[in-house]
């Protein structure tokens, strides 16, 4: 029988696991060359290896879209669900099996549009899991339709004269949700930072929301061109409690000092949406985790029968 309690080391972690990184790799992805998803996948596979995650005790859940093919390329358990609904599935997995390491992988359409309601509530539930939102500012798989994060004025097949509305700001939304526990942003063109962010997210006890700015060479090649090409335009949030990656901080010289326990400052930084800022915006490990508050006793079948007989007594004629 499976012990559904999480080890002290962390869910899914098995110190005896010593698998080569290749053992975490599933069949190779078929994303476009130059797609930002490749780098995020590689960083994730490295994380699983470095953190000694047992593949059988790790679950990747995704929605629908380019990035939601993620679980197919990782050798753990996976659930490639339906559009916008990665978070409810991941919630069910974690509620039923707190012992598992759970990752939810979504695109911007998944998370901020069709599944936006789940996003708000998953943040509030604060289950211990990592939620990755790979944000390329466009619907890719369905071939170039405007998403909520598409920059205003950017043309697409559904809004050929440019997106009508200002882009939704996923960071400020997440930071506005009651019980937010971990909110970070990283960018696929800074691989070391992606890895360090994933690691911080995984090690955080609670719902870790990571928005990954992700280039789509096919439909939105321009949206992240400037910050990806000019290092000074990618600002790094620095703090000893934040995402710490000295090498990145050495090359990317625009630093913003930010204490991730300072929610007001986090919101202020996130609101300035003309800046590309990566790092840990907010962290609060003290918030109650839903799988802990909902923990229930484990009973044998015989226990349950005894309790059920008492229940029948209550309804006896």
């Amino acid at each position: 029988m499976i012990d559904t309690a999480c080890s002290l080391l962390g869910c899914g972690i098995d110190p005896h696991v010593e698998l080569p990184q290749e053992d975490y790799e599933g069949p190779p992805p078929r994303w476009c060359p130059g797609c930002g998803d490749h780098g995020v996948l590689a960083a994730t596979q490295r994380l699983l290896h470095d953190e000694r995650l047992a593949p059988e005790r790790t679950v990747f859940v995704s929605g629908i879209g380019c990035s939601s093919r993620f679980p197919h390329h990782i050798r753990t358990y996976g659930f490639h669900g339906i559009h916008g609904r990665a978070l409810p599935i991941a919630t069910g997995v974690k509620l039923m099996r707190p012992d598992l390491a759970v990752f939810a992988v979504m695109g911007d359409g998944d998370c901020t549009s069709i599944g936006a309601g789940h996003w708000v509530h998953a943040v509030r539930y604060n289950l211990d899991m990592v939620a990755l939102m790979l944000d390329n500012n466009i619907y890719g798989l369905t071939k170039n339709q405007t998403s909520p994060t598409t920059p205003q004025g950017h043309p697409s097949n559904t809004q050929p004269r440019g997106s009508w509305l200002p882009a939704l700001n996923p960071l400020s939304v997440t930071l506005g949700i009651t019980n937010a526990s971990f909110v970070a942003q990283t960018a696929d063109w800074v691989p070391g930072h992606v890895y360090a962010t994933l690691q911080a997210a995984f090690r955080h006890p609670g719902f870790a929301f990571v928005r990954i700015l992700q280039r789509c060479p096919k439909w939105t090649p321009g949206v992240f061109r400037a910050p990806a090409q000019q290092m000074a335009l990618t600002e790094i949030l620095v703090h000893e409690d934040g995402v710490v990656e000295p090498e990145v901080e050495q090359y990317y010289k625009t630093h913003v000092a930010h204490d991730p326990s300072d929610l007001d400052h986090a919101r202020h930084l996130a609101e300035e949406s003309d800046k590309v800022r990566i790092g840990l915006f907010y962290k609060n490990a003290a918030n109650a985790r839903y799988e802990e508050t909902r923990r229930v006793p484990v009973h044998t079948a015989e226990d349950k029968i005894r309790l059920l007989e008492a229940e029948f007594d209550r309804h006896a004629v």
Partner: peptide, 23 residues
């Protein structure tokens, strides 16, 4: 030893049940 999870909507309720059953 059971949990009633009141989900944020009907869709999520189904999704949570599917995820839980999967696991």
């Amino acid at each position: 030893g059971g949990i009633v999870h009141q989900a944020e909507d009907e869709i999520a309720a189904a999704g949570v049940a599917v995820g839980a059953s999967f696991a």
